[in-house]
Amino acid sequence: MKAIVQLEFDGRCREAFEFYARALGGEIKVMNALGETKDVPLPPGSRPAGAESIRFAQLAIGDTLIQGNDLPPGEYRPKQGFNVALHVRDKAEAHRVFGALADGGRVETPLSEVAWSSAFGMLKDRFGTPWLILSMDE
């Protein structure tokens, strides 16, 4: 079994995934707009969104995958009750990733040293996605 984060957006999935690819050093593996896949039926109970809306996006960051899609107008709700936790190799990488994701977003817990990590912080990026950054160095 493998758990993969699936993020939903209000028409900004493409913009978000391009931002995440730059900020996290990842590679977009899939970016399918609804207009490009109109011959593929929607899942039962789904409503169509605009042709430019993203049906499915996938970003690879090392061995990790993040997936996403746009929701039809009026169906998006702000994210709450979770965060996307990124365990990075060292304090320098934590500062780089935190700074990149915080650009245009809101810092919830400033990046700082805590008992369990040399660099720990939490933020919501410009798309409303909540992130937890944790340095794994000793």
Rank of each mutant, 00 (worst) to 15 (best):
M1H: 11
M1C: 06
K2T: 02
A3G: 03
A3Q: 02
A3F: 10
V5N: 07
Q6V: 02
L7F: 15
L7P: 04
F9N: 10
D10T: 06
R12L: 08
R14Y: 00
A16M: 12
A16Y: 02
E18A: 10
R22T: 15
A23P: 01
A23Y: 03
A23K: 04
L24M: 14
G25R: 08
G26V: 08
G26C: 12
G26M: 05
I28P: 13
M31N: 13
A33H: 06
A33P: 04
G35Q: 03
E36F: 03
V40C: 05
P41H: 06
P41Y: 02
L42M: 12
G45E: 05
G45P: 02
G45T: 05
G45M: 06
S46F: 13
P48T: 01
A49R: 04
A49H: 01
G50P: 01
G50E: 12
G50D: 12
E52F: 01
I54L: 04
R55H: 00
R55Y: 00
F56S: 08
F56E: 11
A57F: 06
Q58L: 14
L59K: 08
A60W: 00
I61D: 04
G62C: 11
G62V: 08
D63L: 07
T64F: 08
D70G: 09
L71N: 05
P72E: 01
R77M: 09
R77Q: 02
P78T: 13
P78C: 14
P78V: 08
Q80C: 12
Q80W: 05
Q80V: 11
G81T: 01
G81D: 02
G81C: 09
N83F: 06
V84S: 11
V84H: 07
V84L: 14
H87S: 09
V88S: 05
R89G: 02
R89Y: 00
D90E: 02
K91F: 00
A92G: 04
A92R: 01
E93S: 04
A94K: 06
A94D: 01
H95L: 07
V97M: 06
F98D: 03
A100S: 13
L101E: 02
D103S: 12
G104D: 12
G104N: 12
G105Q: 02
R106P: 10
V107M: 14
P110D: 09
S112L: 15
S112K: 14
S117Q: 06
S118I: 01
A119S: 14
A119R: 05
L123P: 14
D125I: 08
F127S: 14
F127Q: 12
F127V: 11
G128L: 10
W131K: 11
W131L: 09
L132W: 01
I133A: 04
L134G: 07
L134W: 04
S135M: 09
M136I: 03
D137W: 05
D137T: 05
